[in-house]
């Protein structure tokens, strides 16, 4: 082999090694090609970073009411104005964002975990299917509001004692929202698993003696990831909105604990007087939900092997 040949071969090897084709890399390159998803991701990151680090820069206490400065418009001291008790809206939106996002993400994680677990088990193991789907139907048929009333009545004082008023209510709310919103995911996942487990590659895996848990983890789960991702993104949005409805009914966080939903409800009456009270929390809520949905859309495209590479 001449030097030239060797150099050529080396270059080829280098090129190949430079771009090894891994699943993650494929997914990422497909994801970055989705412009909406990238924009969504950017907006979402800005919001997350903003609510995480914003309160360190804008240091006004969100619950402090400066009574002389109420119903003010936007100014340097109060970038989003103040409410009717003189509380700074920007500080409240930042603080509210922390709570809303945390509730949304955590509740979604709980719902996805239960939904996927039930869906996969019901779809894969025929013996479990009947009972698990009846449980799902049962949860779907439960009237949520009375259920919430009962749960809050039973556990509020215990949790308040164990974790303090705010953390206790947080756990309770996240748990309640999670436990009442996994059913749709479970149904979707079950449907996909039912179809998948008859496919040739699963049959092949089973024929060489792969144990069930490995088939599920290696072959089934990655293929149902896309519906899960889509439910998850929608789930964040629903969880944020459910939380705000709960707070409105007085079942959620204490009234001096701002969340986006509560800020919106409180501000609704003041819409004509200080529009910034509904515009900002509303905008943040919509932007979050929209950006998360776009990210979900991009992820679905990126994760689906049929679409990827086209």
């Amino acid at each position: 082999m001449s030097d030239q040949d060797r150099i050529f071969a080396q270059t080829v090897v280098d090129e190949v090694e430079e771009r090894p084709r891994t699943l993650l890399r494929d997914v990422w390159s497909q994801f970055t090609a989705h412009r909406g998803a990238m924009a969504g991701l950017a907006v979402f990151l800005v919001i997350v970073l903003g609510v995480s680090f914003g309160p360190f820069i804008h240091t006004i206490d969100p619950t402090y009411s400066d009574f002389r400065a109420r119903n003010q418009g936007m100014s340097l001291a109060h970038p989003m104005g103040t409410d009717n008790l003189g509380r700074d809206m920007f500080a409240q939106v930042l603080q509210g964002g922390r709570v809303s996002l945390l509730v949304g993400v955590t509740a979604m994680a709980i719902a996805m975990f239960f939904g996927t677990l039930v869906g996969v088990l019901a779809g894969y193991f025929r013996r479990l299917d009947g009972i698990l789907m009846r449980v799902t139907d049962l949860f779907l048929a439960l009237p949520i509001l009375p259920l919430l009333l009962v749960i809050i009545m039973l556990f509020r004082d215990t949790l308040r004692k164990a974790f303090g008023p705010e953390a206790g209510i947080f756990l309770l709310i996240v748990f309640i929202i999670g436990i009442t919103s996994w059913m749709q995911t479970a149904r979707i996942v079950r449907g996909d698993v039912l179809a998948l487990k008859e496919r040739e590659f699963v049959l092949a895996a089973r024929s060489i003696g792969t144990p069930a848990h490995r088939i599920i983890l290696r072959h089934v789960l990655p293929n149902v990831l896309s519906p899960i991702m889509v439910s998850a993104t929608l789930g964040i949005a629903t969880a944020i909105i459910t939380e705000s409805a709960l707070s409105f009914l007085g079942l959620g966080f204490p009234s001096d604990f701002p969340t986006w939903g509560r800020l919106l409800f409180d501000g609704a009456n003041f819409m004509t007087l200080t529009p910034s009270r509904v515009i900002w929390p509303g905008l943040m809520l919509s932007l979050t939900v929209l950006s998360v949905n776009y990210v979900g859309d991009g992820l679905r495209d990126a994760l689906d092997p049929h679409i990827r590479g086209r």
């Binding site: 619950t63 402090y64 009411s65 009574f67 009717n84 008790l85 509380r87 409105f248 009914l249 007085g250 009234s255 001096d256 409180d266 009456n269």
Partner: peptide, 16 residues
């Protein structure tokens, strides 16, 4: 207290 925006406003002020 009961849920009512005026009452929650009063609560917040009294707390402070």
């Amino acid at each position: 207290t009961s849920t009512n925006s005026v009452r929650q406003g009063t609560q917040a002020l009294v707390k402070q």
